[in-house]
Computed example of a mutant assay.
Amino acid sequence: MTTSEQMPARLDLSIIIPVYNESSGVISCWKAITETLSKSSINYEIIFVDDGSEDDSLNRLLSINDNKVHVLKLTHNVGQQRAMFTALGHCRGATVITYDSDLQFAPECILELHQQISSGYDIAGGIRIARKDGFWQNRLPSMIGQYLINKALGIRQQDFGAVKAYSFALVQRIIRTAREPIIIPATAYVISRNFIEIPVQHQERKEGVSKWSTLKRMELYFDIYTLYADRPFAWIMLIGFGCFFLGVLLGFGILLYKLFVQPHFSGVIIFFDVFLLIFGLHFVSLSLIGEFVVRIHRKREQHETNLIETHYTGSRLTETAP
């Protein structure tokens, strides 16, 4: 199948929806989106990406009788970001929106985000109003991650994890420049600073169970920080140099004390001095190794592999070659 990287945008809007064990909610998601978009004149497509679901999600998707719907079945579970990235090359819309199947973002935001991209922005993101997630498991880690992400990317945006829309031109650049690990919005913000954020309604999840955990969120934030920050381990090096410098000063002070005051000195303070010197050298070494590893990783070229096992399309979602 010819990918969108080889053709101009043919539709107004493409919506990418990753699905992993969401059999109870995919039909509701499709109905809510089509009902919203049917009120407009937008020519659109919906691309569901089955990310190796182990439940009945794929069969539910294949039961949809809608020629605007495409279903990409991946060979195995690869995670939300890589699943969406795999679908980018199949989008034909002038606006590409990455959307969650849990309907926590009201479908009306799709029209609002599309309008912002149509007005000339490369990126349009939502800001969740009155967020309905738990504080300790979701909102607190998000606040920490938001700070780290803004520092790493050198931007000031308010809600990294909310629904996002991208221009077709930007999507093509993301496909060409993305690096492992795939994090679409981070790559987008690095490429373009032409973005806007708008408030979007956030709802409680009505069906299914969230696949996000605190550990997964922190892993994502750490990936972004190490992949995109200019000097991700500089603070470790500064701590190391600071401890080593204090150790040198303390050692010099101990030497002067023993030469001019008295030869006997507390072993605890000597031990603390040695600890500072070793600790400082250890942190400097760790930072140098970390910088070396990150630079090697960043120089690796992105080699696209075909993760799509089957591409279903058409009013009856007949099987086509990937």
Results as ranks from 00 to 15, higher is better:
161 G>T: 15
96 V>E: 09
67 N>Q: 09
140 L>R: 06
242 G>A: 09
104 Q>G: 11
101 S>P: 07
228 Y>Q: 01
113 L>K: 12
87 A>L: 09
113 L>G: 14
85 F>T: 00
120 G>D: 01
196 I>N: 01
313 T>L: 11
296 I>G: 01
252 F>W: 14
318 T>C: 10
220 L>R: 15
174 I>W: 08
156 R>G: 05
89 G>F: 05
23 S>P: 00
160 F>E: 04
153 L>R: 13
92 R>S: 14
272 F>E: 01
163 V>P: 06
56 D>T: 11
194 N>V: 06
167 S>H: 05
61 L>S: 09
20 Y>E: 03
294 V>G: 01
201 Q>S: 14
299 K>C: 11
165 A>L: 09
150 N>K: 08
52 G>R: 07
274 V>Y: 08
146 Q>L: 15
23 S>D: 12
72 L>D: 05
285 S>E: 04
220 L>N: 00
7 M>Q: 12
74 L>V: 02
60 R>Y: 13
34 T>K: 15
275 F>M: 06
115 Q>G: 08
252 F>N: 06
75 T>C: 05
20 Y>G: 00
60 R>W: 08
31 K>S: 11
50 D>S: 10
120 G>M: 02
136 W>S: 07
179 R>L: 13
212 W>D: 00
27 I>H: 05
302 Q>A: 08
218 M>C: 04
48 F>S: 02
16 I>Y: 06
249 L>P: 03
150 N>L: 02
89 G>A: 06
250 L>D: 07
241 F>T: 06
97 I>F: 13
258 K>P: 03
42 I>H: 00
180 E>R: 13
318 T>Y: 15
15 I>F: 14
283 F>H: 13
31 K>D: 08
267 G>F: 15
193 R>V: 06
313 T>P: 02
16 I>Q: 02
7 M>V: 14
63 S>L: 12
310 T>M: 03
77 N>I: 07
117 I>C: 05
58 L>K: 05
103 L>P: 02
308 I>L: 06
256 L>E: 11
46 I>Q: 10
203 Q>E: 15
117 I>Y: 02
299 K>T: 13
28 S>T: 14
282 H>E: 01
72 L>W: 04
246 L>Q: 08
191 I>A: 03
232 P>E: 01
151 K>C: 06
269 I>D: 08
115 Q>R: 14
57 S>T: 15
82 R>L: 14
6 Q>P: 00
59 N>G: 07
241 F>P: 00
260 F>R: 05
204 E>A: 11
200 V>A: 13
147 Y>F: 14
96 V>S: 09
194 N>P: 07
80 Q>H: 08
273 D>K: 08
66 D>C: 09
4 S>F: 13
45 E>G: 08
182 I>V: 13
265 F>P: 01
57 S>P: 06
139 R>H: 04
297 H>I: 05
315 S>H: 14
310 T>W: 11
52 G>W: 05
60 R>I: 09
112 E>D: 13
34 T>N: 15
2 T>S: 12
128 R>C: 01
212 W>C: 00
239 I>D: 15
228 Y>W: 15
78 V>Y: 09
150 N>A: 02
197 E>F: 03
47 I>V: 12
141 P>I: 00
257 Y>M: 03
76 H>V: 06
295 R>F: 03
210 S>R: 00
121 Y>M: 04
149 I>E: 04
167 S>D: 07
267 G>K: 04
117 I>M: 06
191 I>M: 10
276 L>P: 00
159 D>G: 03
173 R>H: 10
